[in-house]
Design a protein around this nucleic acid. Structure first.
Length: 493
RNA sequence: GGCUCCGUGGUCAAGUGGUCAAGACGUCGCCCUCUCAAGGCGAAAACGGGAGUUCGACUCUCCUCGGAGUCACCA
């Protein structure tokens, strides 16, 4: 095992959304393979025919691709150990199940669902004993005859009645359980499909999986899988159980905790790279550095199994926000500009605007892409002014002063040969001198007139560039009109 | 309830017998500043509890408390 090529697999069931817990499992599985120069396999576990959701498999492909978690083998690209969809491997599971029955490690069970249900009811309040092993000792010949007669049955694993089973997990260490706490679990269901409990063992073995990576919710059933490996005489893989991702209330993350699927996070305006970086650090840390921003590529060489933590981790949206801001700030300008345009174009419609400047201004002010429309809404709405708006305490600006300032400025602005950042900058700097005003007064007055908002992304010059000459001038004129007409009680300037 | 696991600031976490117990997010304050951000500086904030072992425990042992997971013909 030590010198074998590391092979890991991501084995989701196509039951709907890609939960971030699943995504993190996929990420760690991918990373453990990549770090060791091994292979990452995708396998679809669709053995529960009732829970299959249309389009779920496509969603899995899309998510993996969007995140850059490229698999080496899988249903869509094939590989030497296919098929990679469990529903296409039924004969294999049956063959192995029969082998187990023949060697006495499993048995057919004819108990009805109803009988099982009443069994559970009787056990309420009592210590768990599970299935009562009613069919465990049926004579093989009788059992064969009943199967022949068409009676419905399942195949159950025959657990040892005493002794204990132990195994060593790469993150949780050695775990020991009494065999008498193990139930004779179902291996093959009455519909002929295997259970996860059986299929995952058979497939992991047949597909040469060396490291079984999965959530810690499987920790307590792992001894049962090991008994299966032993019954077949197979080598037990390295187990890497991952701590749970929980919500703010400490419970297993679920829908009620907010956006918990990859798609929802994307819709909310988070970048895939930020999501990956974020979940990489949920339950893992590099240890020898305090750095927290790692790209997928960097993780591919930095990841370590020993850095995986045991305690459950709370998913923090606040930290995700910060992480997303970091990634936005590091985006190449052209790429960021395209993202901004995607959000801004529909708002501006036919109105012209300077997308480059808008992107520039938004780059250090955006937490989530989905926040952009609200942030820039004022740019496409006609500003409504109040005299209070023009009161800037620190710049010592008020409505009266603003009227004077803008009045003195508007002509020069109209005459400005080139409406660009440096020209506007020079014009305002000159005004500061000629009007003997402080920068805050001039800039503040213009910014307020252009936006109608006390808080704006960017300052006077940036807004003027974004809005363009016509819109800017029109807004300043409107502001001036308002200031003059509303100036009922004139105060000394 | 049985079994299994977990327990360092609000959150993510480093720490592997000797540290004034890192760092990050968030929070608060200051600086910068045409607003808001960004950025810079600084602050508050933790080893669940109790016994041991030891010259010395966050680190080892036991107990206890708390939390979680699991007990399906779901994965």
């Amino acid at each position: 095992m030590a010198n074998a090529v590391v092979r890991t697999r991501f084995a989701p069931s196509p039951t709907g959304i890609m939960h971030i817990g699943n995504l993190r499992s996929a990420l760690y599985e991918y990373l453990i393979a990549r770090v060791a120069g091994g292979h990452f396999i995708l396998r679809i576990e669709d053995t529960d025919r009732e829970r299959i959701v249309d389009g779920a498999v496509e969603a899995i492909y899309n998510t993996l691709q969007t995140c850059g978690l490229q698999h080496d083998e899988g249903p869509d690209i094939g590989g030497p150990f296919g098929p990679y969809i469990q529903s296409e491997r039924l004969p294999t599971y049956r063959r192995y199940a029969i082998e187990l029955v023949e060697q006495g490690d499993a048995y057919p069970c004819f108990c009805s669902i109803e009988r099982l249900a009443s069994l559970h009811e009787e056990q309420v309040g009592e210590a768990f004993i599970g299935y009562d092993r009613h069919c465990r000792d049926i004579d093989p010949a009788d059992a064969a005859a009943r199967i022949e007669a068409g009676e419905s049955y399942v195949i159950r694993q025959k657990m040892p009645l005493d002794g204990e089973t132990s195994f060593t997990d790469a993150v949780y260490g050695t775990i020991i359980v009494d065999n008498k706490t193990l139930e004779d679990q179902v291996l093959i269901k009455s519909d002929g499909y295997p259970t996860y409990n059986f299929a995952n063992v058979v497939d992991d073995q047949l597909m040469g999986i060396t490291h079984v990576v999965r959530g810690s919710e499987y920790l307590s059933s792992t001894p049962k899988y090991n008994l299966l490996y032993e019954a077949f005489g197979w080598e037990i893989p390295v187990y890497v159980h991952l701590p749970l991702i929980v919500g703010e209330d400490g419970r297993k993350l679920s829908k009620r905790h907010g956006a918990t699927s990859f798609d929802e996070l994307i819709d909310a305006g988070y970048l895939p790279e930020a999501i990956i970086n974020m979940i990489a650090f949920l339950g893992w840390s590099p240890g020898n550095t305090t750095r927290e921003n790692f790209t997928l590529e960097e993780l591919e060489s930095a990841f370590t199994i020993s850095g995986i933590n045991k305690a459950p981790a709370v998913f923090s949206y606040k930290k995700l926000n910060w992480m997303n801001e970091q990634y936005i700030k590091n985006l190449p300008d052209d790429k960021w500009c395209a993202m901004v345009k995607e959000k801004a174009d529909p708002l501006f419609e036919e109105k012209p605007y300077d997308a480059t400047m808008l992107a520039h201004v938004l780059k250090e002010r955006t937490t989530r892409l989905s926040d952009i429309p609200e942030t820039i809404a004022f740019m496409v709405e006609t500003p409504t002014y109040t005299r209070d708006l023009f009161t800037l305490k620190r710049a010592k600006l008020n409505a009266e002063k603003a009227a004077v300032i803008l009045d003195a400025l508007i002509t020069d602005m109209q005459m400005l040969p080139s409406w660009d950042e440096s020209s506007l900058h020079d014009l305002f700097e000159l005004a500061i001198v000629t009007q003997s005003r402080k920068k805050g007064e001039i800039m503040g007055a213009v910014r307020l007139a252009l936006s109608g908002k006390t808080i704006t992304p960017g300052g006077a010059i940036e807004l003027a560039v974004i809005l363009g000459r016509d819109e800017s001038l029109s807004r300043i004129k409107n502001a001036l009109t308002f200031l003059n007409e509303s100036d009922v009680v004139s105060e000394p300037v």
